[in-house]
Nucleic acid binder design. Structure first.
Lengths: 348, 348
DNA sequence: TTGTATGCGTTATCAT
DNA sequence: ATGATAACGCATACAA
């Protein structure tokens, strides 16, 4: 039973702290976890020893005892590198200088047993919580799964799919409506729309925004002015080719994300069209590429990093800050960034 | 002392397996860890029970007992989103369907106590190993730190900075030399060079490749044909403006990465120059943007994802595959991808 | 307010 | 070849 608790080159443990401070482990534990029932003197003394020894609690041991890790998971199946990385940056910013770490977990949306796969992941790693990125965040079964196994979660999305505590959303519909209005104000009346993939809530919301704007402006457009895309460059290029084959062809095209907008621009170039003189283009996301192409792309700035940061805060802040419960907003506004890819339509 | 080892809705533990299989915990542990000294019968029996019960070892408990986590860390300070994500994908591919998970850890290169920060991270989380991305991977002190605290590591880089077991490298110098040669073959003799940031090994290697190619072709260029960049779009744009202000100006520009090459293209456009008719451009990386801009960028394909995958394999495979020690290569070849941004120089 | 005994689920030691 | 028992470092229940 003789505790062998001297320092031997490895990190100090809670035992070392207890011995040096002449208190029990439990007291040290209380100090660490900020228990309210503690003599101020002892607390100070213990804290001093902790500092002296450079003690930091062993996360593995805590994880075992608490049956919960201090790991935040990022579950995603998003094909866009910029978006994924921005989300990571947002989360990392939120957990910087905390005990949390970020574990990334891409999943195959095609896989039949994807949900089972995620369950395994969550249960085995006993994550503190997960951030669910779109589009997989739109999957209600996944949220239900998290609830079942008692894993905190926050869903990111383009509409309020869950209660505020479990959701950070952007107002894609309104944002697109404003963007289309802007196009109409510029004089455009034949506006093409490149949609996102079927089944994506973001794709739906953006399209609804498009339709609402048209309706409010009493503009009737043929169905052919809507071309399907799937958020990739190539799909944007293809969709634009279909759109530009139309007669009369659109004088402006809204693409549901920047990558597709870049494809639209490419399609225009291949035809020798001048953007924005012959064709105006608007994108969505405001990824770096938007300002790096020529002409710089007018686009909707999607505050995805901020949303991710807020998501991580929602997950963790109630712990870090006691019961202060800083209210993180659950709705984030996208705004139109006007650059060089929009001009009035050419005269016929 | 009565073991309360019935299933109560939570996952089965090693005790459950032991009880059902009528063996001791240790025997089960031996089966899990593939101990050689085991009766084949018992092993089979235990494995069956494991399967029946759906038992999976608890990573937290293992981490505590082994004093090592089954977590792979990615330490990086790379500003390029595409590159970072490709590396993540490579690592994730390597550890897919294993017990490993990926923890990402960006660091501030500017921070004075960055090394101390990383040490804390490695020691506290007791990572199984880390993948070091460039440019921080070029920091020898960091490698030394890993060795000191006994954390496996693999460095990714543009030259062999470490022994093969701890290194995956690309042949940037040769690759750039070939690219410049190609430009020379096309008839260019005034070739501008946009460098990477000082202190980056990749920047140095690429520049050496440039100089070697010139030397071998007996081409002497004024110093002003080399402009400093720092791997960002804006720095590429600025560097190109300096280069294009020269008289006579270069007929081709090699940029040390794609993002800067995109900046060069932007600068050319702003002057109304036609690429590639008036100016040829070559980049480095082959990020998606290279094929999404117009004209598609001729660039050097840097197999960074493959390198990352190999790095993770080096870290983990000796464990997964017993002592088989599948030899992962430590040198990866970059190749020139010819697209539309290069043409013979304009006649004077 | 503080301490004792015990549990978390695994691996390591040293028997047999 | 297998098992009993003690770590691993922390947290919780219950005493004191």
């Amino acid at each position: 039973m003789a505790a062998k608790n001297r320092e031997n080159g490895s990190q100090p443990t809670i035992n070392d702290v207890a011995r040096v401070a002449s208190v029990s482990k439990k007291t040290v534990s209380r100090v660490i976890n900020g228990s309210p029932l503690l003599n101020d003197d002892t607390r100070k003394r213990v804290q001093e020893v902790i500092k002296d020894l450079g003690y930091v609690p062993n996360p593995q041991a805590r994880a075992l005892a608490l049956r919960r890790n201090f790991l935040i998971g990022l579950v995603h199946d998003n094909p866009n590198a910029q978006t994924v990385l921005k989300v990571q940056q947002g989360i990392l910013e939120a957990i910087r200088d905390t005990e949390f770490e970020l574990v990334v977990r891409p999943v195959d949306r095609g896989m039949v047993n994807m949900l089972e796969d995620i369950r395994q992941f969550l249960e085995r790693q006993r994550l503190f919580g997960v951030v669910l990125m779109p589009p997989i965040s739109e999957n209600d079964s996944l949220a239900e799964l998290c609830r079942q196994i008692g894993c905190r979660y926050v869903r990111m999305g383009s509409a309020e799919l869950d209660q505020p505590g479990n959701m950070v959303a952007s107002n894609d519909r309104e944002a697109v409506r404003d963007a289309i209005r802007y196009l109409i104000e510029q004089g455009h009346s034949r506006i093409g729309f490149v949609s996102g993939p079927h089944g994506f809530r973001s794709a739906l919301e953006r399209r609804l925004g498009f339709e609402e704007a048209l309706e409010q402006a009493d503009l009737k457009l043929p169905r052919s002015m809507i071309a399907d895309g799937n958020y990739t460059f190539d799909s944007g290029l293809l969709a634009a080719e279909r759109l530009l084959d139309l007669s009369p062809r659109p004088t402006a095209i809204f693409a549901s994300n920047d990558e597709m907008a870049t494809g639209v621009l490419q399609a225009a170039r291949r035809r020798g069209m001048d953007v924005p003189k012959d064709l105006s283009i608007v994108g969505f996301d405001d990824t770096p590429i938007a300002s790096h192409i020529w002409p710089p792309l007018t686009t909707v700035r999607w505050p995805i990093a901020t949303m991710a940061r807020s998501a991580a805060l929602k997950l963790t802040v109630s712990v870090t800050e006691g019961e202060q419960e800083v209210d993180e907003p659950s709705m984030f506004l996208s705004t139109l960034i006007r650059r060089g890819s929009v001009a009035p339509p050419p005269r016929d």
